[in-house]
C-alpha cells in the first residue's frame, strides 16, 4: 500500500533541469506546485499515487507578474495571494484578481498557484472562467522548446488539458482589459467563504453608447470543462442594452448550458441560475 510518503519528490534547481527530467520517461514526475489540490487527491485516494513528483514550487523562473506587449504575463507558480494583491492584476485583469480572492481561505491562497488551479482541470476551478474571457494564452515548455496554447483550446475534457507529459505549464499571457471595457466575476457557492462553486462566471464586455461592442463570457461548473458561450456572444454584438435584452440574455445563456446534478447542486438550478448569473454580470 503506497502513501504520499512513498513518492519520490525531486527538487530541480532550475526550470531547465526540470524539463530535462520531464523529457525522459524514466525520470519524469508528476508536476507538483503548492500541493493544495494534489496532496488532497493523493491522501484521499482520488488520484493514484505516482512513483515520482517534481516540485516546481521554488523555481524562480516560474514566478512573477509583468506587463508585455502581448498582455500580462503571469508565471505558473504565482499564488492566489499574489494574484489578488498585485496592483497590475487588479487593474488590468480585475476578474482574475476577484476570482483568486474567492479560492479557499487565506491558507490555500498562500499555496495554491495559477498553474496548479489550471492543471487540476476541475470544472469548478475558480480561475478558469476569468482566464478564458481574456482570449489569452498558456505557455508550455519542454526540453525541445516552448509552445503557446490558446486558452480556448487548453481544456480538452474532464480533468484533461492539451499539455504533453514532457511539458510543463510555465506562464499565462493574458491581454489586459481594453480601454472602455469592464470585467466581472461572480461565484455562486455553497457558503460565503471557502466555497466550491455551484456555478461561477466571468465576463469581459465593451459597451459603447449603450450598445454592446463585444462580449466574452465564461461559466464554470456547468460542463466537464469551463466554457465560453459563443452563441450568446455572437448574437449579442451590436445590440442595445435594455431590459428586453437582459431578459433575452438570461434565456439564451440558460439554454446554452447543460449542467449536471452533483453533490453541490442540481442540473435544473444550475441551468436556471446560469442565465441569472450571466444577466447579473452584464448588468452594470
Amino acid at each position: 500500500m503506497r502513501t504520499v510518503e512513498d513518492i519520490e519528490i525531486r527538487f530541480p534547481g532550475s526550470l531547465a533541469e526540470a524539463l530535462a527530467w520531464q523529457a525522459d520517461e524514466k525520470t519524469r514526475g508528476r508536476p507538483l506546485a503548492g500541493g493544495t489540490d494534489l496532496m488532497v487527491q493523493w491522501e484521499s485516494g482520488v488520484a493514484a499515487i505516482p512513483e515520482r513528483a517534481v516540485s516546481l514550487w521554488g523555481l524562480k523562473e516560474l514566478k512573477g507578474i509583468r506587463e508585455t506587449p502581448r498582455g500580462i504575463e503571469i508565471g505558473a507558480m504565482t499564488t492566489h495571494t499574489e494574484l489578488r494583491s498585485s496592483p497590475l492584476v487588479r487593474e488590468k485583469l480585475p476578474a482574475l484578481a476577484a476570482a483568486a480572492a474567492t479560492v479557499g481561505g487565506r491558507q490555500i491562497q498562500n499555496r495554491g498557484t495559477i498553474a496548479g488551479n489550471v492543471a487540476n482541470a476541475s470544472p469548478a476551478g475558480d480561475l478558469a472562467p476569468t482566464l478564458l474571457i481574456t482570449d489569452g494564452l498558456a505557455t508550455a515548455a519542454s526540453a525541445s522548446g516552448r509552445r503557446d496554447i490558446p486558452l480556448a483550446k487548453l481544456f480538452t475534457g474532464y480533468r484533461k488539458l492539451d499539455v504533453r507529459a514532457d511539458e510543463l505549464l510555465v506562464s499565462f499571457t493574458l491581454p489586459a482589459l481594453p480601454a472602455g471595457a469592464r470585467e466581472k466575476f461572480h461565484k455562486i457557492g455553497t457558503r460565503a467563504a471557502q466555497a466550491i462553486s455551484k456555478v461561477m462566471g466571468a465576463c469581459r464586455v465593451r459597451v459603447q453608447n449603450g450598445t454592446i461592442v463585444s462580449l466574452a463570457v465564461s461559466l464554470g461548473s456547468v460542463a466537464p470543462v469551463p466554457v465560453r458561450l459563443p452563441e450568446l456572444e455572437q448574437w449579442i454584438a451590436g445590440r442595445r442594452v435594455d431590459l428586453n435584452l437582459l431578459e433575452e440574455v438570461e434565456r439564451r445563456a440558460s439554454a446554452e448550458v447543460h449542467p449536471i446534478d452533483d453533490i453541490r447542486s442540481t442540473a435544473t438550478y444550475r441551468k436556471w441560475v446560469s442565465g441569472r448569473l450571466v444577466r447579473a454580470l452584464l448588468e452594470a
Binding site: G34, G35, M39, V40, S55, R106, Q107, N110, R111
Partner: peptide, 9 residues
C-alpha cells in the same frame, strides 16, 4: 504567512 500544514509536502 498562514498555510495549512496538512497540504504541504
Amino acid at each position: 504567512e498562514p498555510v495549512t500544514s496538512c497540504l504541504i509536502a
